[in-house]
Simulated assay, not measured.
Amino acid sequence: MTVLNAELTARFAPTGRLRASINVGNPILARLDEAGTAVGVSVDLAFAFAAGLGLPLELRVFKSAGESVAAVLEGQADFGFFAIDPIRGEHLAFTEPYVLIEGCYLVRDDSQLHDNGEVDQVGVRVVVGKGSAYDLHLTRELKAATIIRSPTSPTVVDTFVAESAEVAAGVKQQLEFDAGRLPGLRLLPGRFMEIRQAMGVPHTYGKDAAEQLRQFIERAKACGFIADALGRHGIVGATVAS
């Protein structure tokens, strides 16, 4: 167990409980089981971190990355699990990444698009999950294509179909799942981005708090905790960051 001084403990858990922001909109990291309970790699990490600090844990569960980030920034949670992004980095101190995930494009079988480099053109509408890492990334990178924002990442493909859009963008595994449940869809080869998932804490919590989080993630990677969690939850396609 990591023993914190009273000042750092108060900063990490100002309410007396360590509050973790969990995004169940990314099934690679967390999801709701049949009982409606959040489970997944990020949940396992949250419990392990709290146990290591000797603090009780409270899960704050959200359906989208945007809501999960906002919860930490607005003081509803003390830390969370987010894709590293420079805009988020203005307010959050990130650990090094612990999991790497591919961001990919999905189109219809009869689409004239066959390469990631063809997506950014006038007349192409790209559906993304509002506030997600790939929303932030594509908002910066796409110059000609139009972005349509779906409420959450899991609803991207349904929005893509409903809007008759040209492209859906998201986590590879989610798009593969949707392509399996809906006929006539295919993924473009390769990826348009590598999503680097990390833990984050507000800069206002101080450098000591950020360093505690960083050390925890490095230990979790080194001892095989994250690899074991990925296997235990049946996650394929995501890799442990070196």
Rank of each mutant, 00 (worst) to 15 (best):
M1T: 08
L4C: 00
A6Q: 09
L8Q: 04
T9E: 13
P14K: 03
T15N: 05
R17H: 05
R17F: 01
R17D: 02
R19T: 13
N23W: 03
G25K: 08
D33V: 12
A35W: 08
V43E: 12
F47P: 05
P56N: 05
E58C: 00
V61H: 10
K63I: 06
Q76C: 04
G80S: 10
I87P: 03
R88C: 04
G89T: 02
G89Y: 05
L92V: 05
T95Q: 12
C104P: 03
L106K: 02
L113G: 12
H114F: 14
D115T: 05
G123H: 01
G123Y: 09
V128P: 02
S132T: 15
D135I: 07
D135Y: 04
K143C: 14
T146G: 13
I148S: 13
S153M: 10
T155L: 15
V156I: 13
D158K: 14
V161G: 05
A162H: 01
S164F: 11
A165Q: 10
L175W: 03
L185N: 05
L187T: 09
R191D: 00
E194P: 02
R196E: 15
M199L: 15
G200K: 08
H203S: 13
E211K: 14
I217P: 13
C223V: 00
G224K: 03
A227L: 12
A227I: 11
A227N: 10
L230P: 07
S242P: 15
